[in-house]
């Protein structure tokens, strides 16, 4: 029993990182209708920058964290400006292809600078596990989970009540009508890429603190697809729950398969099996908007 509880807790923590990355994905999709295949590589870029600052340049972690976020803002702006702005008005398939290209460029850049071996972050939080209901939990897990919840709360409020947030949702629905309101849609696009880059970097930094990082970190981006499709492509709440569910599901499946069938590797497959099932049963996801039809 304890084994499974431990699996669920691991799942929740990994899931909360999926949720964060999914959040970035959903924000881009919501505001610009672009499916961003480079999301995982944005996670990786953030993690490596933070690694370089803390380990190679010996900058204290708190400062490095802030600097990484500033770098992510720049990265987001740069990607939007150089890569996506010229594509406004082009067919969606071209935009998707470009984000796939972007993902390989980011990945190669990381390999050029830092190589492919696993890098480990210095431990910032105490190693001493925290005992919750008889289960030992690493403090970094609790911090990760708390940070994710905090970020979700902030962004939900932002989209619900701030006028920029509402303008972002309006732009997502109808770009030309949004323009006619005086909303500068190019600024909205840039902003959504910045937010996505920032939350992805935070995800990357947390992952680095838990597992260490290597150049395959970008594959995380693929795991985000089941999460957002389960939650609904354009729902923040969906991204949060979808990420958690996928995280728990893949850990529990892995554990069950190991225990009962003595098989490994289910972790990678489980979430995609779920993905197929969701697409068959509920193609809009749990919280995605279905088209409004007036009768």
């Amino acid at each position: 029993m304890e084994y499974y509880l431990q699996l669920i807790i691991n799942g929740l923590v990994v899931g909360s990182i999926y949720s964060l990355v999914a959040l970035g994905f959903v924000i881009i999709y919501k505001a610009t209708k672009v499916v961003n295949f480079a999301q995982g590589e944005m996670v990786m870029a953030g993690a490596y920058i933070c690694f370089a600052l803390t380990v190679q340049y010996q900058i204290p972690f708190a400062l490095a964290f802030v600097m990484t976020l500033a770098f992510s803002v720049l990265l987001g702006l740069l990607i939007e400006r150089m890569v996506l702005r010229p594509l406004i008005g082009e067919p969606i398939i071209s935009v998707v292809m470009v984000t796939i290209g972007l993902s390989s460029i980011l990945k190669s850049l990381v390999q050029v600078f830092w190589g492919t071996q696993i890098r480990v972050f210095p431990s910032i939080l105490p190693q001493e596990p925290f005992i919750l209901m008889g289960l030992p939990i690493a403090p970094v897990y609790i911090a990760a989970f708390g940070l994710c919840i905090l970020l979700f709360a902030i962004f939900s409020l932002f989209f619900k009540y701030s006028s920029v947030g509402i303008a972002m949702r309006a732009t997502a629905f109808d770009q030309q009508a949004a323009q006619s309101m005086g909303i500068g849609i190019k600024n909205i696009f840039a902003l959504s890429w910045c937010i996505a880059a920032v939350v992805s970097s935070i995800g990357g930094i947390i992952l680095g603190n838990i597992n260490g990082i290597n150049s395959q970190l970008g594959h995380l981006g693929l795991k985000v697809f089941p999460a957002v499709i389960l939650g609904g492509l354009d729902s923040l709440l969906g991204a949060a729950l979808g990420g958690l569910i996928i995280g728990v599901l893949e850990n529990v499946c892995e554990g069950l398969a190991r225990e009962l069938l003595n098989l490994g590797g289910f972790k990678e497959v489980a979430s995609f099996v779920v993905l197929v099932i969701i697409l068959m049963v509920k193609p809009h996801g749990l919280f995605g908007t279905e088209e409004i039809e007036r009768v």
Binding site: S163, I166, A167, R169, A170, F173, D174, Q176, A177, A178, S180, M181, G182, I183, T289, I292
Partner: peptide
């Protein structure tokens, strides 16, 4: 009309007041 269908009436009006 081009209203933002998945926003509420008041949110639509806030978009109008954006500037």
């Amino acid at each position: 009309r081009r209203i933002f269908e998945d926003l509420t009436v008041e949110e639509n009006l806030r978009c109008g007041a954006y500037t």
